[in-house]
């Protein structure tokens, strides 16, 4: 009956968003009077796997088949479905990510599960099972009444702040039967900026728009991001112009992010851009146009030239 959490690895380490998911899943388990089990696929050492215990999981099922070392949504869905069956889990929790999205949908299909995506709060189990989620690209919330026997909650970043405790989870090898059909997609090559902070995982984001005037000017943005340990992002026009890669595009048709701090530089703040960032905890807008609509949705604003302001902010951060 335990609450099952699908946790992801990034280069053998538990992803930060998955730590949140484990903590969230453990809280749900507490509400339901049961325990929390994490299911993890891919190569990782035992100490790392056992660290799921710090966030409240009492057990980790480790799917050890080498075929799972490359992330694969379809195969992972088979693994998680098998884990749910073994554990008799009625609630499955995971953090939104591109892999989790691919996995979750297949899983919901397999288990005929009620699914809430972009969950932002713990569920209310006093009368049924109701979870609050972000909809209309952050413009509204829905209270979803999940009626199916099995429920899947895909949580958004910053839904919960994990507290660590001194505990470690019992790690068990898990070897479900894999389907050949789950490996029908072959990965030919992967291009990934390594060493950078992943944008969907980042606590701080420095983002820039056309106000930067050209891709050659991005160093002021990158310097501030580096000082803050922030990820860099951009507006749609900037990605359309190929100044920055599409994976940095935040907004209605790009990534939707919810960091602790979002600093927008030279972005006017069209409603489509706001949709992707309005669930950030604190928004800072820097724009030389005092009438930029973004200021209305910001917590802090500076009317000024980004080429003057950003280097000074970088220095101030370094001096902290």
């Amino acid at each position: 009956m335990s609450v099952l959490i699908f946790a992801e690895l990034d280069e053998g380490k538990l992803k930060k968003s998955s730590q949140e998911a484990i903590f969230y899943g453990a809280k749900v388990a507490e509400m339901l009077g049961t325990s929390a089990t994490a299911i993890i696929a891919g190569a990782a050492d035992n100490t790392e796997l056992a660290s799921a215990g710090k966030f409240g999981a009492t057990k980790v099922l480790h799917a050890t088949d080498a075929k799972l070392n490359e992330p694969n949504g379809m195969a992972y869905a088979t693994v998680v479905a098998a884990a749910a069956q073994q554990e008799g889990s009625k609630v499955i929790v995971l953090a939104k990510s591109s892999l989790a999205d691919a996995m979750t949908a297949r899983l919901a299909g397999k288990l005929k599960a009620g699914l809430a995506a972009n969950v932002i709060e713990l569920p209310n189990v006093s009368n049924g099972f109701v979870v609050k989620s972000s909809i209309y690209t952050g413009k509204a919330f829905a209270f979803n009444d999940l009626k199916a026997d099995i429920k899947i909650l895909a949580i958004k970043k910053n839904t919960i702040t994990p507290e660590e405790k001194d505990a470690s989870a019992a790690v068990e090898a898990f070897t479900p039967t894999l389907n050949e059909a789950d490996f029908a997609i072959s990965v030919k090559s992967t291009e990934k900026s390594s060493g950078d902070i992943l944008l969907p995982e980042a606590d701080f984001v420095v983002s820039a728009g056309r106000g930067l005037k050209g891709p050659e000017n991005w160093s002021v943005v990158e310097d501030l991001a580096k000082a803050l340990h922030a990820a860099t992002a951009c507006s749609k026009p900037v990605s359309d112009l190929d100044w920055r890669p599409h994976s940095e595009h935040v907004g209605q048709t790009g990534l939707k992010i919810s960091p602790n701090l979002y600093i927008a530089c030279g972005i006017s703040g069209a409603i489509q851009h706001l949709a992707g960032v309005n669930s950030s905890k604190v928004i800072v807008v820097i724009n030389k146009d005092a009438d930029a609509p973004f200021f209305k949705s910001a917590d802090y604003g500076i009317v000024g030239d980004v080429f003057d302001v950003l280097p000074r902010l970088t220095k101030a951060v370094q001096a902290l």
Binding site: K112, L115, F143, N144
Partner: peptide
């Protein structure tokens, strides 16, 4: 398998605090 019991709008952000450049 799920229905929406009700909707809610986000609380408006507080007033922006402007800082001189």
């Amino acid at each position: 398998l799920s229905t929406v019991a009700s909707y809610e709008l986000p609380a408006p952000r507080g007033a922006v605090k402007m800082i001189p450049a």
